[in-house]
Design a protein around this nucleic acid. Structure first.
Lengths: 345, 345
DNA sequence: TAAAAATATGTAAACGTTTGCATGAAGTAA
DNA sequence: TTACTTCATGCAAACGTTTACATATTTTTA
């Protein structure tokens, strides 16, 4: 069935020249005469020649493929990062392989190894963070394959990172709640071994301290932050001794679950309960009420990450980069107790 | 900087044997003694050996990589298809390269060519449909690279397809609206050169005919079905001579835009206006009111598509497959005018 | 005990490129 | 004319595997 693809050698034969000349002509090597270059290119088009990247990469040792690893592609945040990466990568002639880990560390390890096997030129990863010392990463480092952590970065200083100032974002969000008059603010904190969640919690604490609001550890819930978990986790805070008047969730999804529960209980948002989420997922603007959240400039993160990666690929002795973007608070109805001032759609 | 990776040849030297033996041992060839096999595997692990897939694929001519092309990854429908594909693909030892076209035909062409250059074993694609005769696909066919169209399939009979019965889905959705007592049903139809949108329109017409509801062409709007477009497109039908009492949208996103507008105008859903969307995007269950929509079993589509692909890769003289799944109507509040009977969450 | 069969390993070519070096032709300077 | 450049192309090895075929060793059979 499979017809063999046409090769450089066949083109060469047909033109009574050699593979090396054809190869050089196709890549626009300047030491090939204009006449020969045109002849080769014309025939290549006529014969539907496509380069065999396997052979090309194998010989040249450089692969024009980037690996992207994310927990899952169907989060707006990640798919926007991916768009940001591909945008820049495509311009530089790179293709990308996308892997999903579903937040499983084992899959992350496997993905990295698989990308190494595929000879990627660089790896862009957003996931289990503290794994920068796991065997797969050590191997990537040993082989000189640059690894760029984006969003969820390792604490390790000697790594390339593009992150958002999560601490600042959380601080802004909580400060906003406090300014709106909320006092007992629940915090849905993610797993604390992941740096972003740790930073968000710190930002939460910082805002409370600054406004002299006593810190109540009972208000801090550490959980994996899914919609369903949010739905359950908010319950203890809706009445009884632990009753709170606001929620700052480190994830929009968990906040969503909470909102569903709160509405079911007939509690009013934002009057009785203010809500601030994190990530500016698409749904936050369309639910009822629209949710205040923190935008992380996901696409820009992708842009910067791939730029850093391409630089690291080029440079001989690359220096580790640490790029920090400032997030933006997007205020919507879910946290606007005071008379309405600004609403960003 | 880059340290060269360890090769099969170096393993061979260290064991005083040859590359061929090592190669066979690593792949568990049965003609290698157990003793040798163990020795090789132990050393490979010790030295962090990873196979070089470029070399391997180049030599063997088979690549264990699949190409996936979708309009965009951040649609629940597509990301679920992708999960469905990867699930099965990973089990069979395949990696996948994901490309986004953003609904641009040129990007689709480029993606296909790029996948061919990357020597993928097969291509799974959901996009501009009628391009099955474009140069890139002809080339893929010529090279014997199986192409599986999923969801958005070409009309061309001689192609592999995994689709949902869009006609049936639309029919069920519209029938449901009629049974609820709605009479003037607007249809947001997508671009009609895309088969799925054409089928959905046919399903809409079929239901009307069956219930003897006169077909009013003014109620059919053909547009690219984004949220913003839906927001604008519903306007003419909310008052005046064209006033309608229901919307069947071929896309959840356009329906969402319409809902936002309808609520802004103070019109009640579902009492004054019933809504049915298409695709069961995640947000349809959480907006207010929850939207009735049609689930396409996206993950299953992915499963079937990759199965068909793997079969086509194996077989010598593959037969074209045409798999059709039945969609499921998910009834929620947006279309329940009559006293509530069933609500699927 | 010789021959045949089975088992384990080695040899060398091949996959389609790229690239350092060599070669030949044409042009320029002395 | 000779020698030195410059320009365009060819030669051949290399990238890291896989694999058909050959060889060497052991076991079985007559």
């Amino acid at each position: 069935m499979a017809i063999k693809r046409i090769t450089i050698t066949e083109l060469a034969k047909e033109l009574n020249t050699t593979p090396s000349t054809v190869s050089r002509a196709l890549r626009g090597h300047e030491c090939i005469s204009r006449e020969m270059r045109d002849k080769v290119n014309d025939l290549a088009i006529k014969r539907n020649y496509t380069v065999n990247r396997l052979a090309s990469s194998l010989r040249s040792g450089s692969s024009k493929t980037l690996g992207i690893i994310v927990p899952r592609v169907n989060r707006d945040f990640f798919s926007n990062c991916i768009s940001g990466i591909e945008e820049v990568a495509a311009k530089a002639g790179y293709t990308s392989i996308i892997c999903q880990t579903h937040d499983e560390q084992e899959k992350e390890e496997k993905s990295v190894l698989s990308l190494i096997e595929s000879n990627v030129a660089g790896i862009l990863i957003s996931t289990w963070s503290d794994s920068s010392q796991s065997p797969a990463f050590i191997e990537a480092n040993r082989l000189g394959i640059p690894v760029i952590f984006f969003d969820r970065a390792t604490k390790d200083i000697n790594q390339n990172k593009v992150v958002v100032d999560d601490n600042l974002g959380a601080y802004e969000g909580v400060k906003h709640l406090i300014e709106q008059g909320y006092k007992r603010i629940v915090h849905f904190a993610g797993p604390q071994h992941i740096k972003i969640y740790n930073d968000r919690k710190e930002g939460y604490l910082k805002a409370l301290r600054e406004f002299n609001i006593p810190i109540d550890k009972n208000l801090i819930v550490e959980n994996p932050l899914s919609k369903d978990i949010g739905y359950d986790a908010i319950l203890p805070f809706l009445k009884g001794p632990k009753k709170a008047d606001a929620l700052f969730s480190a994830s929009d999804y968990a906040a969503l679950g909470a909102i569903i529960r709160i509405k079911e209980m007939g509690i009013s948002i934002p009057d009785e309960m203010g809500i601030v989420g994190f990530s500016n997922e698409m749904f936050t603007s369309i639910i009822d009420p629209p949710m205040t959240t923190i935008d992380q400039h996901s696409k820009r993160i992708g842009n910067y990450a791939v730029q850093a990666c391409l630089e690291a690929i080029k440079e001989e002795n690359p220096v580790f980069k640490n790029i920090v973007l400032s997030p933006t608070l997007i205020i919507r109805e879910s946290s606007l107790k005071k008379p309405l001032r600004i609403i960003n759609k």
